[in-house]
Structures are given as C-alpha cells and as structure tokens.
Computed example of a mutant assay.
Amino acid sequence: MSFYRVITHDTAFHADDVMAVALLRHAGYQFELIRTRDPKILESALAENNSLVLDVGGVYDPSMLNFDHHQDRSLLSAAGLVYEHFKEEICPVDAQIYFGRFIAAIDAMDTNRDNIFDLWATLPRGFKNVSGILGGFNREITDPEMQYEQFGKAVTFAQEMIVNELYSSSKKAKSEAAYQHRTILPNNVAVFDEFSTVWKEKKEHVFAVLPHANGWQIQTVDTNIAVIPQDIAGLETFVFRHISGFMAVIKDKETLINFASNLDEIAGPK
C-alpha cells in the first residue's frame, strides 16, 4: 500500500483528524499533507488510490483509502477508521485491545457515542481529555497558514501520545499474560513477581504486593474500600507509607508478605 499525499479538511481541526495523521506518521508513511475542502481537489483525490482522504469528502471506502465518517453516524471517527485499517502496522497484536481503548475514547468524543457529552458534563470543569488537549492547539481558524502550523504541532504532540500509549498497552498485555501466575495468600492478597498494571481492573483482590524501585510495595485497590494500615510504619526495613493509605513500601519482600498475610480483606478505617 502506498500513497503520496493525505488530504483532510482545513479551518478548525479536532482530535480525530490530528490523531489519524499522527497514526500514519507513526506507521512510517511519508506523504504531503493537504488541508482543504476544495471540491475539485477532493473529487480528484477520492477517485485515485494513491491519495488518502480522511475526515472529509463524504466517502468511506478503505479500498480507495477514503476515510470520512460524517455521512454515516454509525461509523467510527477518522482516527478509528484509519486505526482499524492500519493497526497491524501500528500496534502489536497482543496490545491492540488496550491501545484500541485509547482510540475508542477519541471516537466517543468526536461522535458523541453513548451520549458521552452528558457524562462529560458531570465531570469537574477544567477536566481535559485527549480531544480537548489536541483541540487546544487551534488558534485563529480564519488564518490558514497559522492553522496549518498549529495542526503540525498537534500532530507532533499526538505522535508522542501514541508512543506513550503503545508502551502502556504493551505493558498491560504483558501484565495480562502474567496475571494468572500470581500468588494468592490465604486472605486473598495477591503477590506479583513483576509489577502488574491490570490487577486493579480485575477487582478480584483488595490488596496486592508488587515490586518497587525501593524494594516491595503493597497497594490497595481503592482507598474508598480499604487503606494500608498505619502500623506498617513499625516494620523493619520500612521505607514510607503514602498519606492517603493507598500504598506503602518495605525493603524486604518476606517482611511485607508476612504483614500482608495478616491483613483483613477489608482493612480498618481511614
């Protein structure tokens, strides 16, 4: 598959068109970027298979590299359409389920999937998501040169986000594979030989013991459910306990496991 140019719309940009271009850049494609709604340019580009058109043009036809979604509300956003078509070149197979969540969040905000705007209205004012952050690169939409420059900055920023999310997704995939090999103490505390990034999502344990840069740590799944008791500070090789009670660090693994094995499933009042 090859294409020499990518066309998307001009004026204001959103996370889906920015992220779609960033995904293509990350996959290693080299292309000229054109931002326009000129009908003649779009008509020509839609008809040839070496131009990729996204988020504009009114056509979804991946065989012709056309990835617009506005003509059909059931379609994913431009980011989702491009990711689904090129994901084998972007993300390792075992990490796709996690990286896909990142892209799905952009889709939801761009298309108001599942009435996401109503949910968003319940969050604290000033709270930002990927769509809001990337949209923040917009400046004066009547100044094409400025907007083209800002679009480029947003794409560069999005590429860094992709790298971060791919790293996180790969770690989660590794943790998912290792999860079944955890040790479970008689009181249901989980012990992991490698740091797990998925154990809290499973909601099968209130406490977990995991590696830490300064030794070993114990975490709670949620401080609204339980906290690490303050008396952990009396143990030998104690390093620190976070004031919220969500975690504490001990240098010696066996000391920490002995402490953890004596915890109730729900540990005392905060």
Rank of each mutant, 00 (worst) to 15 (best):
F13D: 06
D16P: 03
M19V: 12
V21H: 07
A22P: 03
L23W: 03
Y29G: 10
Q30T: 05
F31A: 00
R35K: 07
T36F: 03
R37P: 01
S44W: 11
L46E: 03
N49K: 14
N49C: 13
V53N: 03
V53W: 08
S63R: 13
L65K: 10
D68A: 10
H69K: 02
H70I: 13
L76D: 04
L81S: 03
Y83S: 02
Y83V: 02
Y83I: 05
E84D: 08
E89L: 14
E89G: 06
E89N: 06
C91R: 00
C91K: 01
P92C: 11
D94E: 11
D94H: 14
D107A: 07
D107H: 12
D110A: 09
T111N: 06
F117H: 08
L119V: 10
L119K: 06
L119F: 13
L123R: 08
M146Y: 08
I162F: 10
E165K: 12
L166V: 03
S170C: 13
A177P: 00
P186V: 07
F195I: 15
S196F: 05
V198S: 07
W199P: 01
E201M: 13
E201A: 15
K202H: 04
K203D: 10
H205F: 15
V206F: 06
L210G: 06
G215D: 06
W216L: 03
V227E: 04
I228Y: 09
Q230D: 13
I232E: 01
A233L: 11
L235I: 04
F240V: 09
F240Q: 11
H242A: 09
I243E: 04
A248P: 01
V249E: 09
K251C: 07
E254H: 15
E254D: 10
F259Y: 15
S261G: 08
D264P: 05
A267N: 06
K270N: 06
